[in-house]
């Protein structure tokens, strides 16, 4: 497993407080209902992916069996079960984006970063993922990076976007 699995598997006090609030939304004994939002919190807090230890920790928080967490986490593509880069590039490849050249975008990214779909660049900065419709067909081709959409992509604009994303993360790190 990657270096991220070294993390201390407990939420920060603030997140724990948030988890308690989420669980309190549901009737007593139905704490399993909080699983999806808690998994999102866990993915955000523990390096952008869910390790087995992280999922076991979530199971213990919700008092359910670990296998119940695995079942849900493996179902949804937005949960990463392997370590990812600091920046996950989710490129849409559904019809409208494909018509507007998403294949070229994906190929360009693969060449530039020297990775294939689902892999992470050697410097650990970028992970490339192809996804289905992001519901922004009017500005195709489009990709999602974290909470942001980057629209009307072209091979030319991509280089600049990648540099910007790299700079942003380096700034954040320092």
């Amino acid at each position: 497993m990657g270096t991220q699995s070294q993390h201390n598997t407990t939420f920060s006090p603030e997140t724990l407080e948030l988890v308690k609030r989420i669980i309190a939304r549901y009737p007593e004994g139905k704490q399993k209902s909080a699983l999806l939002p808690v998994l999102h919190l866990a993915q955000a807090e523990f390096g952008g992916w869910l390790s087995t230890e992280t999922m076991d920790y979530v199971a213990s928080l919700l008092d359910i069996k670990p296998i119940e967490v695995y079942e849900v986490a493996t179902f949804y593509t937005m949960f990463n079960l392997k370590p990812v880069g600091k920046c996950v590039l989710e490129v849409c490849r559904t019809g409208p984006c494909a018509l507007r050249g998403s294949d070229d975008i994906i190929e360009h990214l693969q060449k530039k970063l020297n990775i294939r779909d689902g892999e992470t660049s050697a410097d650990g900065m970028f992970t490339l993922m192809t996804v289905e419709c992001l519901a922004s067909c009017g500005t195709a081709p489009v990709m999602q990076v974290g909470d942001h959409y980057i629209e009307n992509l072209s091979c030319e604009s991509l280089d600049e976007i990648l540099d910007r994303l790299r700079a942003q993360h380096e700034q954040k790190a320092s």
Binding site: I67, Y70, E71, T74, F75, Y76
Partner: peptide, 18 residues
């Protein structure tokens, strides 16, 4: 039973233990 489950979705569905 508790130790058999369905994992993943679409074309990757897997039935087994963890």
């Amino acid at each position: 039973g508790h130790d058999l489950d369905a994992f993943a979705s679409a074309n990757r569905v897997y039935f087994g233990r963890s």
